[in-house]
């Protein structure tokens, strides 16, 4: 979890704390200056000083604090869309992750969605996990959000990483259908169905306002499918082309 300035101050040594003070002051100064105005004579590749500190945060404050420090820098700089886009596009995986984890704390509205969409196309599971936070819960449209959930299941990112999962999945019949089809495909291939799939399916089968509706599950996957062989044997009715589960599954 991201730590507050106060929590960091309590944990950082003197040199790291002093470095963080200077870095945050530089970021705040940049926030006061005209954002992203081209500097006369500057190389198009030159960077504001605080963005260089953004890269060095882990070495200065410890890798375990890198996300928190980078997030504080983005907030202090009141980072704009061009700034977060640059830091994301030219960032290491860790730098990208910190951008994704902070988007909901910046005044960006839905404009930074292309960064989330980029991360959700990635195969790096650290980026996928960071992309399904509060900003995605607020702004991803239903189709993209459902695919984000499926991506987590595919790449074994724990669905606990998905912000407001229960709220957004609740009563989502289309999501339930997709999960059922996914389970059928896995079963047909003789592969196990991820445990987390049942968690999401449980949410999707709840009615928008009420408790779970027995038997209302689209897709035909057993509603309370237990772990183990039973889950693998679930036969999805809307996928008639799928072969019957094999003995091995």
């Amino acid at each position: 979890m991201l730590k507050s300035r106060e929590e960091l101050d309590a944990e950082l040594g003197g040199a790291a704390r002093a470095w963080l003070d200077e870095a945050l002051a530089e970021a705040a100064h940049d926030a006061e200056a005209a954002h992203d105005a081209p500097r006369p004579g500057a190389s198009p590749y030159a960077s504001p000083p605080w963005e260089l500190r953004y890269a060095a945060a882990g070495r200065r404050c410890g890798p375990e604090h890198a996300d928190s420090v980078r997030s504080l820098l983005l907030v202090a700089a009141r980072a704009t869309l061009p700034s977060v886009t640059r830091l994301y596009e030219q960032g290491t995986a860790a730098e990208r992750r910190a951008v994704l984890l902070t988007l909901h704390r910046l005044d960006l509205g839905p404009t930074a969605l292309p960064l989330v969409e980029d991360a959700l196309r990635a195969n790096d599971t650290r980026l996928v996990a960071a992309a399904v936070g509060p900003y995605a819960a607020d702004h991803l449209d239903p189709h993209a959000w459902r695919h984000a959930v499926l991506k987590c299941l595919f790449t074994e990112v724990p669905v606990a990483a998905i912000a407001r999962l229960g709220e957004r999945a609740r009563g989502d019949a289309e999501l339930a259908r997709m999960l059922g089809d996914f389970a059928a495909e896995r079963t047909a291939a003789g592969r196990t169905v991820p445990e987390d799939l049942r968690t999401v399916l449980g949410h999707a089968r709840r009615t928008p306002t009420g408790p779970t509706t027995p038997g209302a599950a689209p897709g035909g996957v057993a509603r309370t499918a237990p772990a183990g062989a039973d889950a693998h044997r679930a036969t999805p009715t809307p996928a008639p082309a799928a072969p019957a589960p094999t003995e091995e599954s």
Partner: peptide, 15 residues
Amino acid sequence: TPVLDALPRYLEKDG
């Protein structure tokens, strides 16, 4: 050769 101008940004990175 303009890559030389961008290297200071990259050389600060972990890794």
